[in-house]
Computed example of a mutant assay.
Amino acid sequence: MNTRKQQGFSLIEVLIASFIVAFGVLGMAALQLKTLQAAHSAYQRTIASVIAMDVVERLWANIAMNTPLTVTQLQQQSLSHWLQTTNSRQSLPGLGLTLTNTAGTNTYVITVTWTESRLETNNGSSQFVYSLDLYPSS
């Protein structure tokens, strides 16, 4: 008597279980995509950090020169160096570099900017700002 009312119940269970599994797989795929985006962003920030450290080394070398370069010349020299990607050197898409010196101090601010196409933050642009004092002022 009750067997007739329960026909098709297993099919509904299978459909609900399939829906739950599909939703879980979709969530895992979204998580994987976000992980890849974050890893790529971290990679680009690492390259930006390397570029900023290269500018710091150029600033230190500039102090030892007989005829030191100006801040603008150092900025142009560093930017042109990192825009050339010969010898498998890595660079950043849409690379921009700004080097500023606070007047009357030894404080320099290095700003590395690039376009971030994988993340939809800040209209696709990212920046890394590094500030340093070359030597203590007396």
Score class of each variant (00 low, 15 high):
M1I: 12
T3Q: 13
K5F: 10
K5V: 09
Q6G: 03
Q6I: 10
Q7F: 06
Q7Y: 07
G8W: 06
G8C: 05
F9A: 14
F9G: 00
S10H: 01
S10V: 12
L11V: 06
I12M: 15
E13R: 00
E13G: 04
E13A: 04
V14P: 00
L15F: 10
L15A: 11
I16W: 09
I20D: 09
I20R: 01
I20C: 11
I20Q: 05
V21Y: 07
V21I: 15
F23R: 00
F23C: 08
G24R: 08
G24S: 14
V25D: 05
L26D: 05
G27Q: 09
G27E: 11
A29R: 08
A30F: 11
A30M: 12
L31H: 11
L31G: 15
Q32A: 15
L33A: 13
K34R: 13
T35L: 13
L36Y: 14
L36K: 11
Q37Y: 13
Q37C: 07
Q37A: 13
Q37I: 11
A38W: 09
A38D: 11
A39H: 12
H40Y: 14
S41C: 10
A42S: 15
A42K: 13
Y43C: 06
R45D: 15
R45L: 15
I47Y: 04
A48C: 10
A48L: 10
V50E: 09
I51H: 01
I51P: 02
A52K: 05
A52T: 05
A52Q: 05
V55L: 07
V55H: 10
L59Y: 01
W60V: 04
A61C: 02
A61M: 07
A64H: 02
M65R: 08
M65L: 11
M65N: 06
M65H: 02
P68A: 01
P68M: 01
L69T: 02
T70W: 03
V71F: 01
V71M: 02
T72W: 00
T72F: 01
Q73L: 08
L74Y: 02
Q75H: 01
Q76S: 14
Q76R: 07
Q77Y: 07
L79P: 02
L79R: 02
S80Q: 15
S80E: 14
H81T: 10
H81I: 07
H81Q: 11
W82R: 01
W82A: 04
W82G: 03
L83F: 02
L83T: 13
Q84V: 10
T85L: 14
R89H: 11
Q90I: 10
L92R: 10
G94N: 06
G94W: 05
L95I: 04
T100K: 03
T100S: 09
A103N: 04
A103G: 02
T105V: 04
N106R: 10
Y108G: 03
Y108K: 03
V109T: 14
I110H: 10
I110S: 07
T111P: 00
T113W: 07
W114M: 07
W114G: 04
S117I: 11
R118S: 12
L119V: 13
L119Q: 14
E120N: 14
N122I: 02
N123C: 06
G124F: 09
G124A: 08
G124Q: 08
Q127T: 03
F128I: 07
Y130L: 13
Y130V: 07
Y130T: 13
Y130Q: 12
S131Y: 00
L132F: 04
D133N: 14
D133F: 09
L134F: 00
L134N: 02
S138V: 12
S138A: 14
